[in-house]
Simulated scan of single mutants.
Amino acid sequence: RVARSREPGMLLKQIAADFGISESCLTGWLKVADIEDGIKSGTTGEDVVENRELRKRIRLLEQENEVLRRAAAYLSQANLPGK
């Protein structure tokens, strides 16, 4: 908030120094805040969490699919004549 509402002529470098952080760190935080606030497009923290959960779900479904595929192959072999 301090960096966004700074007065004209106040440099990010000085604000960062006042807070004891690097200018690049402050700039990064501002970019993340802009994305989270919808000012800029990008992946929000919420999107990251949702994507992680979806990837877990996909892995689980792929594992279940593999089990079902193997079971179907086994059962089809069991139904061959002579077995």
Results as ranks from 00 to 15, higher is better:
Arg1Leu: 13
Arg1Asn: 14
Arg1Val: 13
Val2Lys: 12
Ala3Pro: 00
Arg4Met: 06
Arg4Tyr: 05
Ser5Arg: 13
Ser5Ile: 09
Arg6Ile: 01
Arg6Asn: 03
Arg6Glu: 02
Glu7Ala: 12
Glu7Gln: 11
Gly9Thr: 01
Gly9Ile: 00
Leu12Lys: 00
Lys13Glu: 13
Lys13Met: 11
Lys13Tyr: 07
Gln14Val: 05
Ile15Arg: 00
Ala17Phe: 07
Ala17Ile: 04
Asp18Leu: 11
Asp18Cys: 08
Asp18Trp: 07
Gly20Glu: 03
Gly20Met: 02
Ser22Leu: 05
Glu23Tyr: 03
Ser24Pro: 01
Cys25Gln: 14
Thr27Ile: 05
Thr27Ala: 15
Gly28Ser: 10
Trp29Pro: 00
Trp29Asn: 12
Leu30Phe: 04
Lys31Met: 07
Lys31His: 12
Val32Cys: 03
Ala33Ser: 11
Ala33Lys: 01
Glu36Cys: 07
Asp37Gly: 04
Asp37Cys: 05
Gly38Arg: 03
Ile39Lys: 05
Lys40Cys: 08
Ser41Lys: 13
Ser41Asn: 13
Gly42Val: 03
Thr43Lys: 11
Thr43Pro: 00
Thr43Phe: 05
Thr43Ala: 07
Asp47His: 04
Val48Tyr: 09
Val49Asp: 10
Val49Ser: 11
Glu50Val: 11
Arg52Asn: 14
Glu53Thr: 09
Leu54Glu: 09
Leu54Lys: 12
Leu54Cys: 06
Leu54Trp: 08
Arg55Ala: 14
Arg55Val: 12
Arg57Pro: 00
Arg57Gln: 11
Arg57Ala: 11
Ile58Leu: 08
Arg59Ile: 04
Arg59Thr: 06
Arg59Lys: 11
Leu60Asn: 10
Leu61Pro: 01
Leu61Met: 04
Glu62Gly: 07
Gln63Tyr: 09
Gln63Trp: 04
Asn65Gln: 15
Glu66His: 02
Glu66Phe: 01
Glu66Trp: 01
Val67Met: 06
Ala71Thr: 14
Ala71Pro: 02
Ala73His: 15
Ala73Asp: 15
Ala73Val: 13
Leu75Val: 13
Ser76His: 13
Ser76Asn: 14
Ser76Pro: 02
Ala78Gly: 06
Ala78Trp: 09
Leu80Thr: 10
Leu80Glu: 15
Leu80Ser: 15
Gly82Cys: 05
Gly82Ile: 02
